[in-house]
């Protein structure tokens, strides 16, 4: 009975955890998966989003509501960020991987330090009425601070997926990943589409930030633990697959939860990476991706 109890709870919290990871990885699924820009600064932007939500919450605004409003300024930041990137590299036609990775690495450090300077290194959290209470169903006990942000993920992903498959600009965004030249022939400006996609990814960062800060307090360097994990999710999902992102994130979340429950929490950080290394070695196109 103890085993069943443990396993069921690990499964439930693993799925919840996975949903939250998916939210963090979603921005990268767009920038890296579709645009092939290795934006290693994304987790740092997520944490910046979390701090923005904390600020709003200090004025008594609900974190999720705050995040929804904050998507607009974050979208604008994303546009500007892409413009800078494009001017520095793509338009001069020398955007090699090493250089763009390094650029984003530098940006991520600057975001982190900016947060340290503005807020110090102490942990920050939000106050919501449901923290401390739990959802109970039979043997399963799941704190609301996990459940609520976890439910946000499928909603956001569904919205994004509908946008990508049903709207004109969403389809254009997916097309830019495949064939830029064909797109420009058909009268679209690939740069504008990419800029928009980058803005969208950055806007998603603030939603992910809200989810993370509801789950638990954050500090300016909290993005680092997520960096490898979100890359693991994106690669496992197969580059650019939005539903795959959710599935891959849940696989990693559940694996981590089981390792935590049955082995030791100290092994958990290695799980995502071991899965990532395994994926890269065996199925470099991801579980849900098609072979190129």
């Amino acid at each position: 009975m103890v085993f069943l109890d443990l396993a069921l709870n690990a499964l439930a919290s693993g799925i919840a955890l996975g949903c939250i990871y998916a939210l963090v990885a979603l921005g990268l699924a767009i920038t890296f998966g579709l645009l092939h820009i290795p934006n290693v600064a994304h987790p740092a932007l997520v944490i910046a989003g979390a701090y923005a939500v904390v600020l709003a919450n200090m004025r008594g605004i609900d974190p999720i509501l705050a995040a929804l409003v904050l998507t607009l300024p974050f979208y604008a930041v994303g546009l500007a960020f892409y413009e800078f990137y494009a001017r520095a590299f793509e338009r001069r036609g020398r955007g090699n991987t090493l250089q763009s990775l390094t650029l984003f690495f530098g940006v991520s450090l600057i975001v982190e330090i900016a947060l340290v300077v503005a807020f110090g290194t102490d942990l920050r959290s939000v106050s919501v009425p449901y923290v401390g209470r739990s959802f109970e169903l039979g043997l399963i006990v799941l704190p609301y601070r996990f459940l609520v942000p976890a439910l946000l993920a499928p909603a956001v992903i569904l919205g994004l997926w509908l946008y990508m498959t049903r709207t004109h600009s969403g389809l254009a965004m997916r097309a830019v990943a495949h064939d830029e030249r064909a797109l420009s022939i058909s009268g679209h400006d690939p740069v504008a589409i990419k800029r928009h996609a980058f803005g969208l990814a950055t806007a998603l960062a603030v939603l992910a930030g809200a989810a993370l800060v509801i789950v638990g307090p954050v500090d300016p360097f909290a993005g680092r633990v997520h960096l490898g994990r979100v890359f693991a999710v994106v690669v496992l999902a197969g580059l650019g697959s939005i539903p795959g992102t959710l599935a891959a994130a849940i696989i990693i979340g559940v694996a981590e939860a089981f390792v935590t429950a049955f082995l030791s929490p100290s092994w958990a950080p290695g799980v995502a990476f071991a899965i990532l290394l395994g994926t890269l070695a065996l199925r470099p196109n991801g579980i849900f991706g098609t072979a190129r």
Binding site: F32, H36, P38, T97, L98, L101, L227, G228, F231, A232, V235, S266, W267, P269, G270, A272, F273, A274, L276, L277, L280, P284
Partner: peptide, 17 residues
């Protein structure tokens, strides 16, 4: 190359763990 870069990030965490 991008995947190699990502895998090396992963390697650090695996060894550290």
């Amino acid at each position: 190359g991008v995947y190699f870069a990502i895998a090396t990030v992963a390697l650090v965490v695996v060894l550290e763990t």
